[in-house]
Simulated assay, not measured.
Amino acid sequence: MENQKLILVIGGTGAQGSSVVKALSESGRYSVRILIRDSSSIHATELAALPNVTLFQGSQDNQKDLHAAFTGVYGAYVNLNGFSIG
């Protein structure tokens, strides 16, 4: 993981986000950090089992969580569900 670029994924357990996480993980070129509200959910634990994937407990609507989640990242994939966050 030393030479891999770190990518933050927000919305990683959704239909589109989970496909992005899987593709980044399978590439071997990136390590993936997923900002996740519930790290014990089925989708989260399945994704955490992939190589080069870690979970970061937090919320996309909390500024401190976002600052911490973005620390050290090379890039980000963000896909929010506007219906669920209002």
Score class of each variant (00 low, 15 high):
22 K>S: 00
32 V>W: 03
72 G>P: 13
21 V>M: 04
44 A>T: 10
15 A>P: 04
71 T>V: 02
46 E>H: 10
14 G>E: 11
34 I>C: 00
66 L>V: 14
70 F>W: 04
23 A>R: 11
34 I>S: 00
66 L>G: 07
17 G>V: 06
26 E>L: 08
34 I>Q: 03
64 K>V: 13
33 R>W: 06
18 S>N: 12
41 S>C: 06
23 A>W: 01
55 L>Y: 10
38 D>Y: 15
27 S>D: 03
59 S>T: 11
28 G>F: 03
16 Q>T: 14
21 V>C: 01
15 A>W: 03
64 K>Q: 13
57 Q>T: 15
72 G>K: 06
17 G>E: 02
69 A>S: 06
46 E>I: 10
39 S>H: 14
40 S>N: 13
56 F>T: 09
31 S>Q: 09
32 V>N: 04
16 Q>H: 08
51 P>C: 00
43 H>A: 14
37 R>M: 07
38 D>S: 12
38 D>E: 09
63 Q>G: 09
20 V>C: 09
28 G>R: 06
52 N>P: 00
68 A>T: 12
32 V>Y: 00
39 S>P: 13
72 G>S: 10
57 Q>R: 12
42 I>W: 00
18 S>T: 02
56 F>G: 06
27 S>E: 07
41 S>W: 09
14 G>F: 11
66 L>S: 06
25 S>P: 06
42 I>L: 03
59 S>Q: 11
65 D>K: 07
61 D>T: 12
36 I>A: 08
21 V>H: 04
64 K>I: 11
43 H>W: 01
70 F>P: 01
49 A>G: 14
68 A>N: 10
20 V>I: 15
69 A>C: 02
44 A>I: 07
47 L>R: 08
32 V>S: 08
29 R>G: 02
66 L>Q: 04
63 Q>S: 12
56 F>L: 09
20 V>E: 00
54 T>Y: 10
28 G>W: 09
35 L>A: 05
49 A>F: 05
67 H>E: 13
51 P>S: 05
34 I>W: 03
45 T>I: 15
70 F>I: 14
42 I>N: 14
47 L>Q: 06
31 S>I: 12
22 K>T: 02
50 L>A: 02
25 S>F: 04
54 T>A: 08
46 E>P: 09
40 S>Y: 13
67 H>I: 15
38 D>R: 02
69 A>M: 05
23 A>Y: 03
62 N>D: 15
52 N>I: 04
15 A>C: 12
36 I>F: 00
59 S>N: 13
20 V>K: 06
52 N>C: 00
52 N>E: 01
41 S>H: 11
60 Q>D: 11
15 A>Q: 15
31 S>A: 15
42 I>C: 12
21 V>K: 00
